[in-house]
Write a protein that binds this DNA or RNA. Structure first.
Lengths: 226, 226
DNA sequence: CCGACAAAAAATATCGATTATTTCGCCAAA
DNA sequence: TTTGGCGAAATAATCGATATTTTTTGTCGG
């Protein structure tokens, strides 16, 4: 999987491919609301395609935990809850800790350059539209972990990232969370990774999550999910 | 997800459901070989159903890393390699370590009884046909982890379990691995879990994986994958 | 007024056929 | 011999229609 292409909405490829990316984007960004029934016919009209590609795309999305499949009762957008949010936060922290340490253990000059580049691209995307920034933000985080040479683990991390960012969109804070000292946090993580200091890098990464987690938890607790 | 129903091949439900369970079983047990092209028409005949359920089932299986989807070029059974096997082993050990410790941290009498029961059922299935034993073996391992109250993590573990057991079938040793001192190992894990001794339980669980891993690695290295 | 049952409506799931794409085999030219 | 196309065959993907299932609605009897 090409890191740079995570999550890009395309207009090429098969109808299934297009439907998959479009639906995923609509769910992650909250256009399709949690728990909402995803009726084949409705989506068929919206995406201007047949039932087969829609069903196939929805099946693919169930594996990402973004869609729930109820046999013979159709599909719904995955539910959300405070518990679910906490679970994602905790699990993500644990697994990314593993991944980052493994990544650093395998550090090479090549990887070093890739994370610096990903970081630079993210900086340049600041102030651009949210979707664009989010794309590079994810690319940076995934590139940090990619050197662990564990495709399955990377896929898990990617999934958890998407599940988490969905809550950010739901809380309507995808934009303004850019305000916090996130830039400094990213710098700190990058520096430690480049220095191949696994303990510091991991500590900063986890703190990064803990902070955004607490921030979001506050918003969500105030009924943003209700 | 009901632990006891992991992986059961049903004849009820929708055609998609049936196709999903059947195909999954065929891939895990090696009836469909790694890398094999999964032609829709061929499967259509074999499973006596239409193309739509097949495609949908295959889409669901891609999320389990058991099928690879190549846009406009169909599906293949997931490839295998020594690297992949090692990755699964390492990742599984790491994540199950987390899960087991969390499970024990949440220990209740109810959970205690569930794992004892699962263990008993596994013992009773010894000597029965492989598939039956495997079902209870998996149920026991999943039940150990289920008390972590982290559905996503449990799903990851379930996936990794299936990926791992696939190698066991490929090595043709699903049966005779029952001979090793696996029974003692399981007893040891159960005892430590019941005693709520996380360190010992985890150590024994990981050792259990390390041993089967080394055992299989030997077989696989000798060209069983070629 | 409420609950059970039946018919109607809506939605899902599936099929068979059609369309689009890739793959393969062949031949000609370099 | 290799390379580059050109069909033809094979396969994947998609569509439109039909069958199946679930959900809703309406009616009757208690």
């Amino acid at each position: 999987m090409n890191i740079a292409e995570f999550d890009v909405v395309t207009t090429e490829g098969s109808a299934t491919q297009r439907a998959y990316h479009l639906l995923r984007h609509m769910i992650v960004t909250g256009v399709l609301k949690p728990g909402e029934k995803l009726k084949i016919d409705g989506l068929r009209n919206r995406l201007e395609t047949g039932a087969s590609p829609i069903r196939e795309a929805l099946s693919l999305l169930t594996s990402d935990n973004l869609v729930e499949r109820h046999d013979q009762r159709g599909f719904t957008a995955a539910a959300v809850s405070v518990d679910n949010f906490q679970e994602i936060l905790v699990l993500r922290s644990s697994i990314e800790d593993l991944a980052l340490r493994a990544s650093i253990a395998n550090a090479t000059q090549d990887w070093e350059e890739r994370i610096v580049l990903a970081h630079h691209r993210m900086l340049r995307a600041e102030g651009k539209e949210t979707d664009m920034f989010e794309q590079f933000h994810k690319a940076f985080h995934m590139e940090l972990l990619a050197n662990a040479a564990s495709p399955i683990m990377l896929k898990f991390c990617s999934q958890l990232y998407d599940l988490n960012i969905r809550y950010r969109y739901l809380a309507g804070s995808a934009m303004n969370y850019q305000r916090r000292d996130v830039r400094d946090e990213h710098n700190g993580i990058l520096d430690a990774a480049v220095a191949r200091d696994a303990d510091t890098a991991s500590e900063r990464l986890l703190n990064h999550y803990k902070l955004t987690g607490a921030f979001l938890s506050g918003l969500l607790g105030n009924g943003a999910l209700a």
